[in-house]
Amino acid sequence: MVEIVCWIAAIFATMLGMASLSLSLPNHWRQVTGIETSLPSRSEQLSLRILGYSSLVVALLLCLAADHPTMAVLVWVMLLSLAAKGIATILTWRQHWLKPILWLFNRSELN
């Protein structure tokens, strides 16, 4: 039971990680903001990447909590793929789902 909770948490953590990383790319940033000219500033890009990579690390820790390390690494790598595919799907059909991450930056033009 514990491992199932860890896996679900890990799925969310990888999704959050991939979402932040996607927003740090100007193309996807524009997709979510819906503003053609909008760009993440250098500091925003950096904080998005830090949030992104650290979520992925948290996900790895969650996987390690659920399984034998050799197995956990495999689960984590596969979850990275699943999350990347999931975020790509969201960016295609449900961009606005990623807006809450933008609220972190509290920029008036984005709201």
Binding site: M18, S22, L25, P26, N27, H28, A84, K85, I87, A88, T89, L91, T92
Partner: peptide, 24 residues
Amino acid sequence: FREFFTFRPTKQTQRSVLDLHNLT
């Protein structure tokens, strides 16, 4: 890699199929 998560299903078939090919 700059548009890592991109899939544009509404573009013409050639474009959207290439998106999906690269993405997957």
